[in-house]
Design a protein around this nucleic acid. Structure first.
Lengths: 217, 217
DNA sequence: ATTATTTTTTAGACTTGTCTAAAAATTATT
DNA sequence: AATAATTTTTAGACAAGTCTAAAAAATAAT
């Protein structure tokens, strides 16, 4: 069994690993958890003892298979709870993160399996992120950033990269939600902004926004 | 804000207070939390600093109004989650306690209010215990122990005193659930057992059982 | 009313998870 | 290749929450 702190480290390492080949540095972990490198080193040693990470001094960490599975299960819980909050308790997608951060640590296999069933075995959370199955496998979607679409290309909005409340509320305001079809009408060279069409309306989108929205062609 | 440990102490004191007039002793608290008296003393001091209990050395503790409200809110959360687990996630009434012990510490007013609404503002948990409202007020039911009914008296089963899994599973086996009507046919003097009628069937009930079942006349 | 017993508190220690400051190792720069 | 800068680790400290053992207070028993 893992402590709350251990689970948070595992989750951080899990997220950092998906997006880099090599081992995850102590600093990267510390930064992601808003703690100090020395604290991270301490915890890494504990996780290594518990055989959820491989660790060699000065060379960062990698999750073991067991560690991956454990971390994926925490992510699974987090995302299932997010679906529950949005679909059953009228939370908006920018409100769920903090609460899900707490709920993901509740220990009860039955609870999470029944919740999964209650929600109809969802495959994605409210931000479009895939929900790992019981074995930790995820159904990778071949999504690309809106910024990488070329002129006149079209696709469906399937996820966000940045899921901060601010960004999500901005999207709500602009009417951009998951499932909406987006067409790129223009790409401005001088500031990399986009002119898109959504709901038969034209909308200008900055580079920053376009780099945080995932599209499926 | 209170730590997990502080919340558990508050809840224990709250439960111990309902059933005694005076202050709650250090030992009683320690016993109820399966810890040592010295640990209880330490925590009592912290709770006293936070003004949730009145405390004078060697004289036990009493909850302040603030403390009562805080504790009632934890109990409210615990019981609402129990309803959710039984009514929405197919848990049986003997399985919910452990999970609710975890869920009761989740901090999110919106979560609990929405959950309350989702469940249709239930007034009692699956064991018949009343659910405090947002202000900590509870709707006291005038229930009595089955053991205190006299021959030929009748009533409805509205709660259990002992809510251990073993007892609840025993009740399930005998077909005794909340809402069932029970008539006392005989009271045996030599062992204080009861002969009751339930669902038009006769059933013999030991003193111990009769002392753990609440009836509303 | 004076012992004996029980309860409660104190004192000091231990664990978990964190921190700062300094040392050691690695990586980057000239 | 030697020095500078950065990263990582170690060492020692601290807070929270717990424990054991001993002292102090309260209660019970003779």
């Amino acid at each position: 069994m893992f402590t709350l702190s251990e689970e948070n480290y595992l989750k951080a390492i899990y997220h950092l690993e998906s997006g880099s080949e090599k081992g995850i540095s102590t600093n990267a972990i510390a930064k992601s958890l808003e703690t100090k490198a020395s604290s991270a080193t301490d915890m890494i040693k504990k996780l290594s003892e518990k055989e959820v990470v491989f660790y060699k001094k000065y060379q960062g960490v990698t999750l073991t298979d067991f560690g991956k599975k454990t971390a994926a299960n925490i992510v699974r819980k987090h995302r299932l709870w997010e679906v529950f909050l949005v679909e059953r308790l009228n939370f908006s997608w920018d409100e769920v993160h903090e609460v899900a951060e707490q709920l993901e640590h509740i220990k009860s296999p039955k609870l999470i399996n029944q919740l999964d069933a209650l929600l109809g075995f969802p495959t994605h959370d409210p931000h479009g992120d895939p929900i790992p199955d019981k074995d930790g496998n995820i159904n990778a979607v071949d999504k690309i950033l809106l910024a990488n679409l070329t002129k006149n290309e079209r696709g469906v909005c399937v996820g966000v990269h940045d899921s901060s409340s601010e960004f999500l509320r901005f999207l709500d305001k602009k009417g951009i939600t998951l499932g909406k079809e987006i067409t790129v009408l223009e790409k401005e060279d001088f500031d990399d902004s986009l002119l898109i069409e959504i709901d038969a309306e034209k909308l200008s989108i900055s580079k920053k926004i376009a780099n945080n929205l995932y599209i499926q062609k």
